[in-house]
Nucleic acid binder design. Structure first.
Lengths: 233, 233
DNA sequence: TTATTTTTATGTTTTACGGCACAAAAATAG
DNA sequence: CTATTTTTGTGCCGTAAAACATAAAAATAA
């Protein structure tokens, strides 16, 4: 396999939304400490409980942010797509990682020492605003999620997850197949239910022609109905 | 009743954690637009869905931040104590309020137009950091809450709420009575359960001598046991 | 005061969902 | 290629918690 090595020059353009906010000196400082990392499917990018020491940016691939719950049951709290920054919240709050990051599929991730970032944030108001906006949106989504996961019934939660995956990772060229293939277990951990129930409910949706299943491939057949299930259960 | 009117001079010292970060000009600008508001028990400080146009600071009293869920069932997502800033997230995310703020008891609230704040944040990195820290901590708590509310059993969730209220509002002079008196319904909305179950479980705790109930007064008798229930259910 | 509404309390019924067991199928390892 | 592990698919059962039904107590209004 002749995979070309990805170098710093390849990822810098991806980081431009952030780099644009910096002056020459800050930009140089940041680039100097930037490192590139490759992960395979199911690799741990960082683990819950670990000291948080980097700002991460997902250049390519897909990954989940999850928390261990009661009896080791995982709950997926966010999913990340390229190009998105992640894994900085804990450091900003002065904590160890409260959740772990795991690759759904092969990922290319850039790391910048969080100390460098925090140093620049103290001086650069534009960069500060960059993070304020992201954190504010994430907090809104987290509250939304709390209510939905606790109050909706299983069918509503699964429908919501399917729509959420469509919004997060989009559809394939056919315009209806989710472009992420999750295990039933991941789908369950995203929707706060047991694997059995994810399987069961997915089958029910298929029988009702709301979706079509082909292994891990999920085709959304009737968005209207899916949205209705999402709303009223 | 001869209540002295609270004026801007009374609240400025309370705002010092924020004002200290500003230069003379910014500080003046902010003070000029600061207004003081009084709310009675159950008054709405702002409503879900409303355009967000102020940064709020709770000077005195106690209040809840809650979201409407399925079938109008409310979920309390945060509680605010003096002196704490709140109600700024939505504006930072460019959204209307995603949750509402309601007074648990009489409250004194200060409002600053959020435009003024955002204007200063664009220039003042220290102020930016002030909000980044808060948002980061809130987001961590929100994720934590999502997992606990979805995975723990009723007893664990109620025990957690009682400990949470102790941490948020403290205890009375006797060293064991929660210094906030919530309705059973609020307690239920905080713990993600029906009012009936909040009442039932509270009674069970009282019977087990973990707490003592006197109307809305709750005395924590056995913290160790309460923490154990919180952990293992 | 008396009347009305709201909150608290408790018992009964229903059901949504987790837990478990067991195959079949698929993926991975040897 | 075969052996082993992991994932997916179904059925059945038990139970935690919601839904429903009253009634007592407390708060609020008339």
């Amino acid at each position: 396999m002749a995979r070309r090595t990805i170098g710093i020059k390849d990822v810098l353009p991806k980081l431009s939304p952030l780099l644009e906010l910096l002056d020459e000196q800050q930009s140089e400082l940041l680039i100097k400490h930037t490192t590139i990392h490759h992960f395979r499917k199911n690799d741990i990018i960082y683990a819950e409980g670990e000291p948080s020491s980097y700002l991460h940016c997902l250049i390519a691939g897909k990954l989940k942010i999850q928390k261990e719950g009661v009896g080791g049951r995982a709950q997926i709290v966010r999913v990340i797509r390229p190009v998105e920054f992640f894994g900085y919240r804990a450091a900003f709050a002065g904590q160890n990682y409260a959740s772990g990051a795991v690759a759904f599929e092969p990922c290319v991730v850039v790391r910048v020492p969080i100390g460098t970032i925090m140093h620049i944030v103290q001086q650069n108001a534009k960069l500060g605003w960059f993070f304020i906006e992201r954190l504010s949106k994430d907090l809104g989504r987290a509250d939304e999620r709390t209510v939905n996961l606790t109050q909706k019934h299983i069918r509503g939660r699964l429908a919501e997850s399917l729509l959420f995956l469509r919004d997060s990772y989009g559809l394939e060229e056919d315009g209806s197949t989710l472009s992420i293939y999750l295990s039933r277990e991941d789908l369950a951990n995203l929707s706060n239910m047991t694997t059995s129930n994810a399987i069961r409910t997915l089958s029910a949706f298929a029988q009702e022609k709301v979706i079509a299943i082909d292994g891990r491939k999920i085709k959304l057949l009737d968005i209207g109905k899916l949205e209705k299930i999402n709303r009223i259960g």
